[in-house]
Design a protein around this nucleic acid. Structure first.
Length: 103
DNA sequence: TGAATGACAAATT
DNA sequence: TAATTTGCCATTC
């Protein structure tokens, strides 16, 4: 594999480009990465992120505007989004139309 | 080298 | 309309 152009590196680059107060869907990140059908891999990469990574992984959610994580991580992501001014409904979903990032 | 996995998404039932 | 099933594709065992 090419360390400089690996899928993982591309995902990192794209996620890092998501501006403050905005969110992107896994599908969007995958599309920008050049693999429209690799939304799952985006989650797979983020799942493997080192804890000391400064990547704004919390700005990545699924197409329903909901967080796919569970348990403790879910709460942390929800809190992180709230800290950026992103409102989350009682159902745990954000208004994609309002907060979705459009490059 | 091959089979299994999964932070999704779209198509069916 | 909502719930379930099938496809995807890079990474991991």
């Amino acid at each position: 594999m090419d360390p400089n152009d690996s899928f993982q590196q591309r995902i990192w680059q794209i996620v890092a480009a998501i501006p403050y107060g905005k969110v992107a869907t896994y599908g969007d990140v995958a599309l920008l990465a050049g693999s429209p059908r690799a939304a799952r891999q985006v989650g797979g990469v983020l799942r493997r992120l080192p804890p000391d990574s400064q990547l704004p992984w919390h700005r990545v959610i699924n197409r329903h505007g909901a967080i796919s994580l569970q348990g403790d991580d879910l709460l942390r992501q929800r809190d992180a989004l709230a800290s950026e001014g992103i409102e989350i409904s009682d159902a745990g979903q954000v208004k994609l139309e309002a907060y979705r990032w459009r490059p």
